[in-house]
Amino acid sequence: MEAKDTNISALCTPAAGEGGRTGDWRDVRPVIDQTKCIPATKGKAACFLCWLYCPEGVVTMTIPVQIDMDYCKGCGICAEECPPNAIRMVREEDADE
């Protein structure tokens, strides 16, 4: 039997995906060139401007930097802000090929 909500007023718990799978909105996706990305090339925590500017909070502050494609809307702000131009926005239909 499926779990059913028994709340008598409209309540929800903050959780990833509560607003829907926003990755479905994306028609271009960010692709990181790790040979240009500053933390990857220096091998230490640095730059992370993509993490700082991402309006969706889907970029990790890790080496290498990772982007959660389930919720990345493909806005392209990370690519715009990346100092060494390591992030390229690729059309979704081309990205899979």
Binding site: E2, K4, A10, C12, A15, E18
Partner: peptide, 22 residues
């Protein structure tokens, strides 16, 4: 934490925890 009285749609929906919500 809880969000109260956010928008409800004409349809029922399953939340990220897999619970069917009104």
């Amino acid at each position: 934490p809880r969000t109260i009285n956010s928008v409800l749609f004409p349809w029922r929906r399953e939340n990220p925890q897999g619970v069917l919500c009104d």
